[in-house]
């Protein structure tokens, strides 16, 4: 399947694994593909930059939404997570409260595999010979992953609008 991928698109798939590892996830979820797309080049990177989707801000939104250590919920109980974190790090070192790292190989979640299939479908539909990052973005948004939706909305972007742009960007540009 990867032989049709542009170099940038290949790079995004590899970078998504690094994003997942950095967020201590145990598999590569669609949101990690989204982060890699925002940080990478190609049509998707340009589109996301234009939409104000900065990779760092997306990353911290993804970290918050994916971690069961919910700072808002704890604050409602009167527990200041930042204070607890600072105390834990003072005693046990930086990142002490982070979830334990996933061991060894991390695979692609079902939603990510479907994203890649949808990307391929998008390229076929547009009769594009190569699969670029724009197709990948369209693929990620086609599967309707709830975490992707939450993270995008948190940054003020409507996932459906972004999908329309990603689907249409071959013709517009």
């Amino acid at each position: 399947m990867f032989e049709r991928f542009t170099d940038e698109a290949r790079h995004v798939v590899a970078a998504a694994q690094e994003e997942a590892r950095a967020l201590r996830a145990d598999e590569v979820a669609p949101v990690h593909l989204l982060l890699a797309l925002a940080a990478g080049g190609g049509p998707a990177g340009r589109l996301m930059q234009a939409a104000g989707l900065d990779a760092d801000r997306l990353r911290s939104a993804a970290r918050r939404s994916g971690d069961p250590l919910d700072a808002d919920a704890l604050a409602a109980l009167g527990v200041d997570l930042d204070q607890v974190r600072a105390a834990a790090e003072a005693a046990f070192g930086p990142g002490a409260l982070d979830p334990p790292p996933a061991g060894g190989h991390i695979g692609f979640a079902g939603g990510s595999r479907r994203s890649l299939e949808e990307a391929l479908r998008s390229a076929v539909r547009r009769k594009d010979r190569r699969l670029d990052t724009g197709h990948l973005l369209a693929g990620v948004l086609a599967v309707g992953d709830p975490q992707v939706g939450r993270v995008l909305r948190e940054l003020g972007t409507d996932p459906r609008e972004l999908r329309d742009q990603a689907e249409g960007d071959g013709e517009v540009a």
Binding site: P68, L69, D70, A71, A73, L74, A76, L77, V79, L81, V84, A88, L97, P99
Partner: peptide, 14 residues
């Protein structure tokens, strides 16, 4: 319930 889950997670990590 979200607060309970977060507390449990915090206790586990500590």
């Amino acid at each position: 319930l979200r607060a309970i889950r977060a507390l449990r997670e915090l206790a586990d990590r500590l």
